[in-house]
Nucleic acid binder design. Structure first.
Lengths: 225, 225
DNA sequence: ACAAGCATGTAAGTAGTTACATGATTGC
DNA sequence: GCAATCATGTAACTACTTACATGCTTGT
């Protein structure tokens, strides 16, 4: 359903299935993904429905291709979708389910490691969007508030990705800090040495852990927002 | 796959399919959803696989029920999943796709309305989590940093929901502000009256629009983070 | 009598993934 | 000759949704 409308929207300008795949991978991957094996049958179905039309074209490299384009009927279906209000689906975050159940492992160090890896993934995604943002800003003096309206809408979605991922990274950092504080407290309890917690804390953030090191590296480039 | 492991995790304590549905709806809906029509067959499949066992039980109201529980083999499968690293899937946010393509409607006011409705939804979700957070804090003096470890893990996921939704609301507000600024600029351009933008801005946030009013009402209870 | 809540399920359909098949062209 | 890239597709499978069927108990 959503993929149908997204293709309708992307095909205001003619493109092939292969082209569209690149748009998903290189431009809009932060809010939608699609495989070629899903794109091709969908294009065929939408053409049968009268929302797309295709024509053969030749490519520089490889065999011939088909360029698809939205028909007026397709445009109406698209606008209907856009005007139907925001489509908010059920959230499904497997990593939160894992964290929710992670007490099963009975080891807070595992949870710290888990969140550290998660932080790394989010930070990498954030950096990818940040690179687009920075590049766009350098190439167009109208960026971000005086862009033409079509690009302005795109920029709003990019901004969402940036803010959202920054919040994710912030949450990971906060959680790791809180977990380490608990670990330190536990250690000092076992030893009954009141100053042991300080030592434990120094150890925890001063070792040669490669994951932690990559974490610290990433953190430098990371957002206030 | 993920649902399998989540059920394994939830069934460390015996429960029926119906009970589990309530857990999804009332406790963990902010990161996972499941329908009864998916839960029942999954429970049967996991029992055949040896990861769950069931026994009949009677209920106060309605017909007899089946209580399921994780077996040792199920526990091992669960721990394997938890130790396998964070499972981060492809993001699919239909509302961002809509916003990305919304220039098609050729009317910034429609985009403002769209984001206002979106803001309302996020704010409501945030308030639901905030209520859980507040209640928990009032009922348990150990909240949030001295909770027992199982509840501490749960709290981390709740905190993620709060931070994430707060960022969503912030993004909506920022976007609406930027859109209004553009609308004001356009208006003043048409009229060629340099002070018209001020008037337009006052009108835009002072009218009797019920959606806007609900927005402002919600905003009072909304997060710094 | 009937609605609401408890309780378990099946059937049909949609959306998306993984694996595979095919074939052309360019650069090394 | 071979890998990479361009290009289109099918088949089998997994995950999830919507609609429906059934039946029991309690409160109004």
């Amino acid at each position: 359903m959503s993929l149908d409308r997204i293709l309708l929207g992307l095909l205001r300008e003619p493109a092939s299935g292969y082209d569209l795949k690149k748009v998903f991978d290189e431009r809009i991957g932060y809010f939608w993904a699609a495989e070629l094996s899903q794109i091709y049958p969908t294009l065929q179905r939408l053409e049968k429905k009268g929302w797309l039309r295709s024509r053969p074209a030749d490519s520089k490299r490889g065999r011939g291709r088909f360029l698809y384009e939205t028909t007026p009927a397709g445009g109406r279906a698209l606008r209907e979708w856009l005007a139907s209000g925001p489509q908010v689906g059920d959230d499904r975050f497997a990593y939160l389910a894992q964290l929710y159940l992670m007490n099963e492992l009975g080891d807070l160090n595992q949870t710290v490691q888990f969140l550290t890896r998660l932080r790394d993934r989010f930070a990498r995604k954030w950096e990818a969007l940040r690179a687009i943002d920075r590049h766009w800003g350098e190439c167009d003096p109208r960026y971000p508030d005086d862009l033409p309206l079509d690009e302005f809408h795109v920029q709003l979605t990019l901004r969402k990705g940036l803010l959202s991922l920054a919040a994710h990274v912030k949450w990971c950092d906060e959680s790791i800090r809180r977990l380490r504080a608990r670990l330190a407290k536990e250690k000092s309890h076992v030893r009954t040495l009141p100053r042991a917690s300080v030592v434990a804390h120094r150890r925890g953030s001063g070792g040669a852990d490669p994951v932690l090191d990559s974490r610290r590296r990433a953190q430098r480039r990371t957002p206030a927002h």
